[in-house]
């Protein structure tokens, strides 16, 4: 076997291991009740269906490594900036402990995994946020990793794909969390003006500063069925307007209807749709310098 094949195998093994840790929590018993339809679903059925309920189609949130393992060609995952983590800039009470817990629980250094990989043979710069890491909230480290990925894509003339899942700002990093919105939006604007092609995939839930920055700035915006997507969270809106929100409000299908998405794509179709879009765009527009 050639060195390249061995390397690819090793990469695939690593991603598979991380993906396993990154898939939804596995309870000891063999069946669990679907949070949407309430029916009991065998664990095995769930994992065979990419954690989509085979009975009602409910898309369980999944971790970043698992997400990437679903769309990347086998053996092509190469993680970038794996060691970039938060520095607790405001010395915020209890924040260090929270970060340590999140790191132990998820095996991640921060709430986003960024990587170089191939999808259907196309080389891409790809990132996925993970809602299990402090709600995928926007820290300076998360913003920095996303920005470095955007710049990497620009420099190497690669299409960019980001899977978002975020509860909004990282409160413990205060204004520095907020500033990541400007940083990522500015980096994407530069990337776009050079002809870079960016697919943003919004997954459940994507809210707050991530929605109001990089997640909304794709050339193509896709979402998973049922994903909650918005700037303000539903609870805040209900408190503000003093009334219950209508059924389906801020869900992917609602956004599609209101003109804010190109398509709602079920998880088992996502890889094919990405390949189609990469085929149609190549590396993007007339990418210069």
């Amino acid at each position: 076997m050639s060195n390249i094949n061995i390397l690819a195998q090793r990469r695939q093994k690593l991603l598979a291991l991380k993906a396993l840790r990154s898939s939804p929590v596995v309870p000891a018993h063999k069946e669990e009740a679907c949070p949407s339809c309430g029916k009991l679903v065998a664990r095995r059925d769930l994992s065979d269906h990419h954690y989509v309920c085979p009975l009602c189609g409910y898309h369980h949130p999944v971790g970043a490594y698992y997400r990437l393992s679903l769309v990347l060609d086998k053996g092509t995952f190469r993680e970038l900036e794996v060691n970039l983590i938060s520095n607790d800039p405001l010395q915020f009470p209890d924040y260090k402990d929270k970060l340590d817990q999140a790191r132990r629980r998820t095996g991640m250094g921060e709430g986003v995994v960024t990587a170089l990989g191939r999808i259907g043979g196309y080389l891409v710069a790809v990132g996925a946020l993970d809602s299990r890491f402090l709600m995928g909230s926007m820290s300076a480290a998360l913003g920095e990793k996303v920005t470095r990925l955007i710049e990497y894509a620009g420099k190497n003339k690669l299409p960019l794909i980001l899977f978002s899942a975020s509860g909004g700002a990282r409160m413990q990093e205060g204004i520095l969390s907020l500033m990541q919105m400007a940083k990522t939006a500015a980096a994407l604007e530069r990337f776009s003006r050079k002809g870079g092609f960016y697919i943003s995939v919004l997954t459940h839930p994507t809210t707050g500063g991530v929605t109001a920055s990089f997640a909304s700035l794709g050339d193509i915006l896709l979402a998973e069925p049922g994903a909650l997507i918005g700037f303000a969270g539903p609870r805040v809106i209900e408190q503000t307007i003093g009334q219950k929100l209508p059924e389906g409000f801020q869900r992917a299908e609602y956004l599609l209807e209101h003109g804010f998405l190109d398509a709602v794509v079920p998880r088992d179709r996502l890889r094919d749709v990405l390949i189609q879009l990469l085929r149609l765009h190549g590396k993007g527009g007339d990418i210069r310098g």
Binding site: M181, A182, A185, T211, A215, G230, I237, Y254
Partner: peptide, 15 residues
Amino acid sequence: AEARGQGEAIAETLA
């Protein structure tokens, strides 16, 4: 505000 894309409007303004 949500129905008309508050997040998108802010993101585009930043960019």
